[in-house]
């Protein structure tokens, strides 16, 4: 058992051939025990074993200060320090590799303005609860297989938000000309 959710996949998992996934270290940040266990169970079922759980934003920062994680999955709404605070703290640390640790926000906040806020804070991926294992895998694969440049500027620190392989937005040439006049 993990918490109240039976982790019945554990025995199946032990009989599986070793995979590469134990080499990936993941931090789950959620103050809701059932959701912690759910995410933990899903990741375990997928073959990840190097999983650490933090039950609050502050505990997450403690763990981050002493361990290196390959990526972080964090909730947004938490009592002491919310997920956005955690993301901003990591991004503003200005210390690679900590500052550019990939972060996936897993939250029930489902409005468009929430997504914009999270992207502005510097998340790499956004997943709305309820989530499926397939959606989580998709976000994890994107983080691993399509890493983005990391921008550190006065107004934004986080993964490059520009769409890859797309021309710059319309009007930038005109603005450059205007500035050079």
């Amino acid at each position: 058992m993990v918490g109240d959710i039976p982790l019945k996949t554990t025995t199946d998992f032990l009989s599986m051939p070793p995979t590469i996934l134990p080499n990936l270290s993941i931090l789950i940040v959620d103050d809701e025990r059932l959701i912690q266990n759910l995410v933990y169970g899903v990741l375990s079922s997928l073959g990840f074993t190097n999983i650490t759980v933090a039950s609050s934003g502050r505990k997450a920062l403690d763990k981050i200060s002493t361990n290196k994680f390959d990526f972080i999955i964090t909730d947004w709404r938490m009592d002491d320090l919310d997920g956005i605070d955690v993301v901003q703290h990591i991004r503003k640390s200005q210390k690679p590799p900590l500052c550019n640790t990939p972060i996936i926000m897993l939250t029930g906040n489902s409005e468009a303005h929430h997504v914009k806020t999270a992207i502005s804070a510097g998340v790499n991926g956004y997943l709305i609860k309820p989530f499926s294992a397939e959606q989580l895998v998709k976000r994890i694969r994107t983080v691993i297989e399509e890493p983005r440049d990391f921008v550190m500027s006065r107004n934004f620190t986080g993964p490059d938000r520009r769409h890859v392989n797309q021309p710059p937005p319309e009007g930038t040439e005109r603005r450059k000309l205007h500035r050079n006049k």
Binding site: D70, N100, I144, D149, F150, V151, D160
Partner: peptide
């Protein structure tokens, strides 16, 4: 802005 090239270590 300072732009760090994408970290491809996981890839």
């Amino acid at each position: 802005a300072v732009i760090l090239a994408a970290d491809r270590s996981l890839l």
